[in-house]
Simulated scan of single mutants.
Amino acid sequence: MNLSIRPRRNRQSPAIRDMVRETVLTPGNLIYPLFLQEGDENTPISAMPGCQRWCLADLVQEAGEAHALGIPGVVLFPRIPDELKTPGAEECYNDDGLVPRAIRALKAAHPTLMVITDVALDPYNSDGHDGLVAADGRILNDETVAVLCQQALCHARAGADIVAPSDMMDGRVAALRAALDHADFTQVSIMSYTAKYASAYYGPFRGALDSAPKAGDKKTYQMDPANTIEALREAALDESEGADILMVKPAGPYLDIIARIRDASTLPIAAYQVSGEYLMIKAGAAAGWLDEDKVAMESLLGIRRAGANMILTYFAKKIAAVL
């Protein structure tokens, strides 16, 4: 053994470790997902400790506090009242709906805050699916894409900076780009959920929005967790159709997918640390088995190390304060 070569010399002090550190995590890499609901009250989410569905006024305040910590943007997820859910999901493109009102309020209060919106039908669809459902249970692709275009235009009119289609319908990125450009919203970006897997990690999120499918599952449109090459195909398609940012969801169990798409594309990569990932850390910390701040920080650093430029995480505000 050649003891003249000692890698530990580069680990011996905080100053040296800082200088040779290969991956850096800053608040600027974080995006804060926020749940919102109608009314004047906030509702804690039992399956996601520390998270809640915000009323509009408190949503604006929470987003402002996060932005002051250096977080550049938020992404919005609405809990839609049951009486507004329909098979055609018409509420998703109501210009006076919950999300457009939230966008306008956020942009008015915090002009430099980046507002990202989820483009999918599951919060609005009485069937609980990301797409329109045929009488025989099939998820209709092209008909869904037409509605998604109306939804994206609604968000753009309200002032959204980025629309994020999470539906996994074929061809939706090209259709959204054409619709936005035709309406002179060429400045609105598309953050495509490129590799969204049919994951068991989404459970707490669906409970928070009451958006679980009423029948069947999402395996005919979300990706098989066993597949890797398929993610590269999806990435190539989304890039060719005009996506500005490619997203992988979930993040932690799919670090290999983040890395492979990073190697295959020059576009920025986003990754979503989803509700199940968040809950496991929270539960471990609540039981006294984990240090929440340290494990959350390490998990996010791992996602950055895999190649993600930006991370959607419920820890965003907490970790930004630590950083």
Rank of each mutant, 00 (worst) to 15 (best):
A264M: 14
L106K: 08
D82L: 05
R9V: 11
G216E: 11
P123K: 03
G28F: 02
A296M: 08
K294T: 14
A321S: 13
Y201N: 05
L300Y: 06
Y124Q: 06
S265V: 12
L76D: 06
A164H: 02
E292M: 04
D181R: 13
P123C: 03
A105Y: 05
R138W: 00
P78N: 06
Q187T: 14
I311Y: 06
P14W: 09
G88R: 15
R304D: 02
L34Y: 01
R11Y: 09
A108P: 00
F205W: 08
E241Q: 15
P7I: 06
P253K: 11
H182Q: 14
A102C: 07
N141K: 07
H155F: 15
D136F: 11
Q273R: 05
Q222N: 05
A178H: 11
V74K: 04
Y201D: 01
G128S: 08
V163Q: 08
D181L: 08
A57N: 12
A316S: 15
L180S: 09
N42S: 15
L290E: 03
I162M: 03
D291I: 00
L153V: 09
G276C: 02
A158H: 10
D136I: 10
L113V: 07
Y272N: 05
L98N: 08
V74W: 07
A321Y: 11
M114A: 08
V145F: 10
D40G: 00
I257D: 05
A175W: 02
Y32H: 13
N2W: 08
P33F: 03
G276R: 06
M19I: 06
G284Q: 07
S4A: 13
V115K: 06
A178K: 15
A306N: 05
G207F: 02
V274D: 07
H155I: 01
T186C: 14
L279H: 12
G302W: 04
D122M: 14
Y193I: 10
C55H: 13
Y201R: 02
Y221P: 07
R101S: 05
D170C: 08
M297A: 14
A135E: 15
L323N: 05
L140R: 15
D130M: 03
L84W: 10
N309R: 12
P44C: 09
P268N: 11
G242E: 01
P14Q: 13
R304H: 10
H182N: 11
G50Q: 02
P111I: 11
A320N: 04
L153C: 12
E239G: 00
G207A: 13
D210N: 15
Y197Q: 04
R138H: 12
I269S: 12
H129A: 04
L279S: 13
G70K: 12
P72W: 08
V274H: 03
I319S: 04
E143L: 13
L323P: 04
L279M: 12
A135G: 14
A321V: 09
A296K: 11
A243S: 12
S199T: 15
S192W: 03
V147S: 03
V188R: 05
G203T: 10
G50M: 08
D95S: 10
